[in-house]
Design a protein around this nucleic acid. Sequence first.
DNA 1: ACAGTATTCAAGTATTTACTTGAATAAGCC
DNA 2: GGCTTATTCAAGTAAATACTTGAATACTGT
Lengths: 245, 245
Amino acid sequence: MNSREGYAMSRQKKSSGTLGSRDAKKELFDGFASVAKVMSSGRRAEIVDILAQGERPVDEISHEIRQSIANTSQHLQLLLRAGLLKSRRDGTRIYYSLSGSAVSRLWAAVRDVAVEHLAELEELATSYLGDRSSLTTMTRSELRERMDDGDLMLIDVRPEAEFRAGHIAGASSVTIKELETRLDQLPNDRLIVAYCRGPYCVYADNAVRILTRQGMKAARLEDGFPEWKEAGLPVEASNTHASGV
Amino acid sequence: MNSREGYAMSRQKKSSGTLGSRDAKKELFDGFASVAKVMSSGRRAEIVDILAQGERPVDEISHEIRQSIANTSQHLQLLLRAGLLKSRRDGTRIYYSLSGSAVSRLWAAVRDVAVEHLAELEELATSYLGDRSSLTTMTRSELRERMDDGDLMLIDVRPEAEFRAGHIAGASSVTIKELETRLDQLPNDRLIVAYCRGPYCVYADNAVRILTRQGMKAARLEDGFPEWKEAGLPVEASNTHASGV
DNA sequence: ACAGTATTCAAGTATTTACTTGAATAAGCC
DNA sequence: GGCTTATTCAAGTAAATACTTGAATACTGT
């Protein structure tokens, strides 16, 4: 199932030219470009963003990106054949995951360029996330320091499956869906920091808005779980803290 | 000339949906993916690789990638409109350059994923670069140490225009075209380290082969100039050392 | 203003791509 | 073996893309 047969090679003529030849150079760069090519679809970008949180089965991925199972499967096959994903079967279900941390770094690099150099990215982000200018944010280094002090509460607002797959060490799972029903379990006297899948995930923004509206002290971590992990900061898995502990 | 009008926005319907809506999320991720999309062509990947060495005019870029001026210009416009390049006019000539270091990092991330996860990348690389297994290589940290000791000679085998635009501090320019005519100017008793545009540039491999065939001690720097610079290591510009100095 | 050089734009062509729909395949359960 | 569930494959459709060719535009020099 985890087929890794030559993606680019199967799509191009096999005459690869001689040492240093123009044709050989074209094919090498076409090979490099094939990685960017599979990332050139917004749907596949969503898939990589989701799998950066941990492995998921096809039906859950399909539901997250609001596409048919068949269409989702075709996107997954493209990512798999290009080498960005790996898969395993568990009974009738196929679970997909990223091939390695280089894929997370690629996805972060794509977003960085878009954020820094794509004029309309800010407008697109505001349309999806709302006006973020009034929301307090926190960097991962600030969070690291404050957590050592033990004077704040860190909440993971992603779906529980993603929390179980891996989360920031010391975080409690309070999914965005249940946040409003668990407000009485959250502290009023300490800062609450919410984090999500990445810098552009609406759950953390909404969590901060809800908490702030309730008069609580809240901030959004600028990074998601993958960025925190990539920075080598402490993570854990398969654990749900009772809130307030 | 440096037009930055909305690339993705001009290509999509303007209704951006409400806060957190599915449509708004699709458009945000389509925006991210548009960055990967312009990198999905092997020709544009070559252009970014060349411009990572410094700005170049259209006709030189066209010659490097062996495409017509018109086709090259269309690719440059796509990169420009997506925000990855900037341009300036000097008389009748237009010079293009990368918008910022985030673009170099994106290009490096694309190559990293290809190298680690694309099964046929090694074969494509071997077709273009030849069998590299017998060539000595050196990491940038090893080079940094050895250069402090002053016991080796570092040569830049890229075209001189790229050398002038920027090069590793202390390097001498010995382009691959003139290497064989300048062998008598190179030391026999010290290691010669050659570097190029990046990890997959054939000039450095060929330089090491030529030098080794002549009985000289030679190695290829694993990185190119952009990776060295990105690592914050010392660089200089607009300077040609006489070899042996 | 005209000619030359450099570059971009527009339209055509062949190829590729994203999604849909229906068929085919794989695994588990009885 | 038959049925159910999950997933992938194949073909069609509409849209997008890479390159070519020729026209248009921008700048310089006289």
